[in-house]
Design a protein around this nucleic acid. Structure first.
Lengths: 226, 226
DNA sequence: GACAACATTGAACGATCGTTCAAATTAAGG
DNA sequence: CCTTAATTTGAACGATCGTTCAATGTTGTC
């Protein structure tokens, strides 16, 4: 306290500055490249040098903008997670405003559709992210990120579903919800199988989304309304 | 043909020898250590040095017994895959012998139960393997292993299910089967969540297995008998 | 336009990676 | 028991990893 020249009227903070446009561009291109390479090769499989080269940046720039490899990975996951959560919660809010009471199918649709639409719209960046989410959900190493980014929103939907099944324990509902999320993620992780089956056209993608929602809705109903 | 000194009575092969007991032990302990570490840290995350140390062997022994890191990984996956396939196909054969016609629930149970029982029996080695299977199924890098080790048996069950739904396309059945497998694997990848819910006692594990089978059975039925 | 904060650059750091090697040790076959 | 193949050992290889550094270039702010 006393060592700092306080008391004086001049704030001795070194005066912040606005971020330059160029800086933001490199930071963003690094995030995008990392998103793609992490999804393709995994965390250890994608080196900072590969990411920097794919982003057209220097290796040191990666650490400068994103501190460390682990921080970079977390930022990649977190970036779109908030967008995904917002889409889901918005769909839920719209649902609550429109119809009363809520149906299980509508709730599942509100949760699953944002992911399916983003992952299936053909945006390679979102497709990579979808695979990344599946990776984060599968590997024990990223539990913390998973809890921080996805569990809160999932908890909201689980609570809503619990209202529809008042006599069922919360854990049973959570387990069925986990099955549903796993089925959802399998569309990304098994896309290589599914594309061989569906041919990749958009209509087939929509049918796949519908099939998933019906699968989960029936599965949950069967396990919860015994 | 002609280049080999055939015809002669003396076989010029340098005479094979039986495998020593000690050699087999190290080879096995390396496989077990690799199974655990690959499951815990992923392929790139687990170094050969870590594996050798955990197995009480030398780094060079790993390459001597299992050629390369990639070969080691493949052998780890393949080792129990055949056992798993055998359990599944045996259950199917027993089913076919006992009842006619087959039910969807019985088919799903025959496919899912061997994995659930092995993964849930508490054997840490099998538990690690279960996580490893989930990892192989999720990462694009291991498609080939996945096709070689798991797809043939899965194909048998998909064909059996197809007989129950003659009017449904094979691809629709395959997709629902993928959902079911993903839900099954989620019990391993999300065990950290589920253990927090179920407390880890055996009875809860059995209930989980039943919940999974009912989930998948209802999901498949809903998507296939439209 | 001058100053300071920010950003990029290219090189280097130590650590660890998978693999390979020659020498030493062990065990099977005649 | 003696030969010889199989196995273990410890060290070393080159490559690549994530991170850091000082120097240089580029902006925003007064």
């Amino acid at each position: 306290m006393s060592s700092i020249s306080s008391g004086s009227a001049s704030p001795r903070q070194p005066r912040r500055r606005a971020v330059s446009k160029r800086s933001l561009a490199t930071s963003l291109s690094i995030l995008n490249a990392a998103e793609r390479l992490f999804a393709e090769r995994g965390y250890e499989g994608a080196s900072i040098r590969d990411i920097a080269k794919a982003a057209g940046a220097q290796v040191a720039s990666v650490n400068f903008h994103h501190v460390s490899k682990e921080t970079l990975f977390e930022r990649v996951v977190e970036r779109r997670a908030s967008e995904l959560s917002k889409l889901r919660l918005d769909a839920l809010a719209e649902l609550k405003q429109k119809q009363q009471p809520l149906t299980l199918e509508a709730l599942l649709s509100a949760f699953l559709r944002p992911y399916l639409e983003k992952a299936g719209a053909g945006d390679p960046q979102w497709l990579a992210y979808a695979r990344l989410v599946a990776m984060v959900s599968a590997e024990a190493r990223w539990h913390k990120i998973s809890e921080r980014c996805f569990d809160p929103t999932a908890g909201v939907f689980i609570a809503e579903i619990a209202k529809l099944f008042p006599r069922v324990s919360g854990s049973a509902i959570a387990v069925s919800f986990i099955f549903s999320v796993a089925s959802m993620l399998s569309l990304s992780t098994s896309s290589w199988r599914i594309e061989a089956l569906a041919g990749g056209n958009q209509q087939a993608m929509d049918q796949l989304a519908n099939q998933l929602i019906r699968f989960c809705e029936a599965g949950m109903r069967a396990t919860l309304e015994a």
